[in-house]
């Protein structure tokens, strides 16, 4: 397990290095010059030359990449040219809030989606299963910005129960929580649908497996069969979906290969914790 994590982290480093090389080569391959973008159309060649030297763009490609990676290794991601603030500061300030938002959204979606999926599978093809199905497909189909807009209008503007903008006063947790509810609701709602459908499908499959029949033949209580014997297997595809899903959610706010790799590593590790066969293959 530890070896596996180290291996995945090593792989993540490789991916980051490759991504940096690709990004640097893009600067040179695509037409246009970063300096003229920054300085605007009225820049003189001398000004551009000066900026090139300042940004190190006049040095050989390999030196540029190596020096950037060297700085990254020391925790320095460079300066953002427009705001004149360190990039790391901007990213991590945003990242905190994004992470909390994503985890809160996915968190409540898991808490609601998994029981809904189990319920649907146990009461398959009944009226209530179909209702859950319609609800799930419905919330998947509605884009989250629509949910966000209408829930803002209703809860924040009409009812004035919750704040409409901002992330809350730093340090005041209740205030931050109140600011979190609406966006987390909007982002998570679609995920409730995804998780419920996925859990239902894999649960139905698992409930048909031989070992479940054997468990029933031994008279094990139904809740033990569904929530322990079947769920531990039925949850595996959902964990995989969430791993990639969390990565995508974060990267949609912050384009970040590192985080994506990290989240798949985490999801694979959870899979490994659940399934001894996966654990031993690592």
């Amino acid at each position: 397990m530890l070896f596996y994590l180290l291996k995945r982290i090593g792989l993540a480093v490789v991916i980051v290095v490759v991504a940096v090389i690709l990004l640097y080569s893009m600067i040179h391959i695509v037409p246009g010059d970063p300096a003229s973008v920054i300085l605007g159309p009225r820049a003189t060649p001398e000004m551009k030359q000066e900026l090139h030297e300042l940004m190190g763009l006049d040095r050989p490609f390999v030196v540029q990449v190596a020096s950037f990676l060297g700085k990254v290794a020391r925790g320095n991601l460079g300066m953002d040219f427009f705001s004149q603030r360190p990039v790391a500061q901007i990213v991590f300030k945003q990242l905190d809030e994004t992470l909390v938002l994503v985890l809160a959204s996915i968190g409540w979606a898991i808490l609601l989606g998994i029981p809904l999926g189990c319920y649907s599978a146990v009461f398959r093809n009944t009226f209530s299963d179909k209702l859950v199905g319609i609800f799930s497909i419905g919330v998947i189909a509605v884009p989250s910005f629509v949910v966000a807009l209408y829930s803002l209008l209703f809860f924040a503007v009409t009812l004035k129960w919750l704040p409409a903008i901002g992330a809350g006063e730093p340090g005041q947790y209740m205030d931050q929580l109140r600011h979190l509810i609406l966006p987390a609701f909007a982002i998570g709602l679609g995920w409730v649908g995804y998780i419920a459908r996925l859990v239902r499908a894999s649960m139905l499959e698992v409930l048909n497996e031989n070992h479940i029949r054997r468990a029933r033949a031994f008279g094990l209580p139904e809740h033990m069969i569904v929530f322990q014997y079947a769920l531990k297997l039925a949850i595996l595809p959902t964990v995989t979906l969430l791993g990639t899903g969390i990565g995508r959610l974060i990267s949609s706010a912050l384009v970040s290969t590192v985080l994506f790799v990290l989240s798949t590593t985490i999801s694979d590790s959870i899979n490994a914790m659940l399934d001894p066969r996966v654990r031993e293959r690592l």
């Binding site: 031989n210 070992h211 033949a217 008279g219």
Partner: peptide, 20 residues
């Protein structure tokens, strides 16, 4: 079931839960 009556199944490899 599992007290007065119990059962042995055909395929032993799938008759046990793989994750417990």
């Amino acid at each position: 079931r599992g007290r007065d009556m119990s059962m042995v199944f055909q395929d032993p490899m799938t008759a046990l839960n793989p994750v417990f």
